[in-house]
Design a protein around this nucleic acid. Sequence first.
DNA 1: CCAGACATATCTGTCGACAGTGTACCTAGA
DNA 2: TCTAGGTACACTGTCGACAGATATGTCTGG
Lengths: 224, 224
Amino acid sequence: MASSTLSRKIANTLSEEILKGELLPGDRLDEQSLANRFEVSRSPIRDALRELASTRLIEHQPRRGFTVATIDMATLRNLYEASGELEGLCAKYCALRADSVQREHIRMLHQRGMEAIRLHDMAAYAEANHALHRAIYDACHNDALRDITLDVRNRLSMFHARFLFSEGRVAQSREEHQEVVDCILKNDGDGASEAMKRHVAKTAVNIISHIVQDSRKPTASADP
Amino acid sequence: MASSTLSRKIANTLSEEILKGELLPGDRLDEQSLANRFEVSRSPIRDALRELASTRLIEHQPRRGFTVATIDMATLRNLYEASGELEGLCAKYCALRADSVQREHIRMLHQRGMEAIRLHDMAAYAEANHALHRAIYDACHNDALRDITLDVRNRLSMFHARFLFSEGRVAQSREEHQEVVDCILKNDGDGASEAMKRHVAKTAVNIISHIVQDSRKPTASADP
DNA sequence: CCAGACATATCTGTCGACAGTGTACCTAGA
DNA sequence: TCTAGGTACACTGTCGACAGATATGTCTGG
């Protein structure tokens, strides 16, 4: 996936690092340091940062540079609310419009997730989970809606990249997915929408409790 | 509203020109020409263009520069569908959460629109219409949802900036607004959502027919 | 010992310049 | 006259440099 320009490649690299949690919210993105690291001048770095800012993964303050996006609890709740509604919409239109190939693909991805659970492979489950959600966006037959929904999902995923699902949560998540997939395969748009909204809401509660718990830990300090 | 950096000012200026229809879809945005026009170097122009691209008002193709965004009919329909759902959500949450000041503001803006109709002042109506929709986004008490909805609305408005509402459509629009506002003032979330979706859908049909009609006109060609 | 002012250093915003690529025009041949 | 090839131009991507602004660290006074 070699993009043509340097800035595009750099933007992709930084994007992945943020989504993987290698760059954490609040981290400064220094133009000079990045220029040194990628062995280019500041120009392509600036272009890449502006491009990344468009996805809201990083923030820009005039004369203060770029930082990996941070978030307050209120915005996090708002984003999860929006995400639930958007994913619900995708699920609804998916149930009403997906063709047979797309339905089979969704069924298969759900099964792959269950297989990962059986093997207690949490990384594989996270992968299958992500793929399932994406397949639903793709099958809603509305590219604009798909793009918006995916942007919100990415914005959220960068904040819980470092939290692995617990086995208990995964089992619950599987059941919720089951409902969504059943409704989609039955062409039940409203059912799929409601099931997906419930699923996202429960995920939100789970993640938010993790974050609250995490923020109570004392920050690491250098002891002599 | 003087922003601190040159690029921010330039981005705002260009954004307004696109939204007003002074720059039309497909127009090339030449870095050199813009640099000459604003009497700056290409650097702040590049920054401004990248920033504008984040709103999807303009498009960027590597080594081919920036152009004012164009759209095909399928994407237009998708955007209107997404817009209807998003505005419906804003209306729902607005009906459930708006405080008394916000409700009064919405009622007032609706009345201002009706006053504009009585005076046959289409420009004032367009202004009041836009203000009413924005007030509803603001009162949904979810900034993330508001931002997403506004972005979609702006993306759409650049394509019908040059079509003035007909008197007939305006009268119809007023009735649809009445339904939405009534539901909001009654705290009827689902009613407001459905009314708003119907309103956007009818607007979409109206605008799309205008655009189809417009595209059938022969394009102006230089006759010697 | 703490607070505030000053000086230093780093970083961003902006500028001008060069090289490579894409486009358009012009010419030559069928 | 139309097509194909080549050439020239214009534009974007990238680079290095300078000036203004912000943040940091230090010093002095209370």
